[in-house]
Amino acid sequence: MSFKATHELHRRRLGRNLGLGLVLAAFVALVFGLSMVKIAALIRESAQHEAES
């Protein structure tokens, strides 16, 4: 015997879970991108600082 998600309830939950999953994935990607930008700026700054001193 198999359980099949045929009810409207399951479709709504699937849609909600997929939506939340995509939002979380986008958030992780954004935090990663922001980290890269900030770290790159810090490296540039320290390189400039070293060149000046």
């Binding site: 309830l9 709504r12 939950r13 849609g15 909600r16 939506g19």
Partner: peptide
């Protein structure tokens, strides 16, 4: 039971 819950279950768009 499922029908009653199903009608009240929010979609992703409802939260948006």
């Amino acid at each position: 039971i499922n029908s009653t819950i199903g009608e009240q279950e929010a979609r992703f768009g409802d939260f948006f």
